[in-house]
Design a protein around this nucleic acid. Structure first.
Lengths: 126, 126
DNA sequence: CTGTATCCCTTCTGATACTG
DNA sequence: CAGTATCAGAAGGGATACAG
């Protein structure tokens, strides 16, 4: 997709727009924190604080920022309970679950090739 | 994986090291340019310039930088032909092909939910 | 052709403080 | 508890020049 070539003809305009949007989505989503959030929300709904505790090393700011982005793209649903103190829950939507499958696949890949990669690094660094 | 919790016991040390490495790999690879490079190298070996032409918008610098990273992690093999001018070819290794499968899946996901996402954005931005 | 190095601007990120 | 705003340092990224 993202590497498709165009010839400049008028009928390419739609394809070009779709491609540019796909690129944009790709750039939004293909980032470490987004993946980790999707992974964490895999099975269950979580509150803001629970998410932050679950994802080691994420800052308050990065978490809100990425949650907004995921919400904007319709991957995550944000439910606010009008209580005090507030209670906000995040859940993966259908499309979020769809992406989760590929994130899971990537986690599996990481596990499978862990030692392989470690070895490659040692070789390279020498 | 990456969201696993530890209890601090000594026997957790190995798990913790593996997890930290997995995290590191995740951070390296879960980035836009790396994905686009892997996607471009999907079927065939490509030269440096061919890659740059294939991936719209990538700069000389980002391409070398990401190729080095992918090579270091053993996802891409770099073959130099000692000719003049030089000819350098990049190919996906076995582990690279493994990751490619998940990148492909993500491209498929993007296509499938393109209009869905576009709609979600319009809703959110209002 | 491929690759490294440099300059310079932009974006990212974490820490902190402050609101409802 | 959840979220926003701000600041400063780090990293990302483009352009250019130069070497093998």
């Amino acid at each position: 997709m993202v590497t498709k070539q165009f010839n400049g003809s008028p009928e390419d305009a739609d394809l070009r727009r779709a491609d540019s949007l796909a690129r944009e989505i790709f750039s939004d989503v293909a980032n470490k924190w987004a993946f980790l959030i999707i992974e964490a929300l895999g099975e269950r709904t979580l509150r803001f604080t629970e998410l932050r505790d679950e994802i080691e090393g994420i800052s308050h700011k990065m978490l809100t920022q990425n949650l907004r982005m995921l919400e904007r793209n319709g991957l995550v649903e944000r439910r606010v309970h009008p209580t005090v103190p507030p209670r906000v829950e995040y859940t993966l939507t259908e499309s979020g679950q769809g992406l989760r499958a590929t994130v899971d696949a990537m986690c599996g890949w990481t596990q499978r090739y862990l030692s392989h990669i470690e070895a490659a690094r040692r070789r390279f660094d020498a």
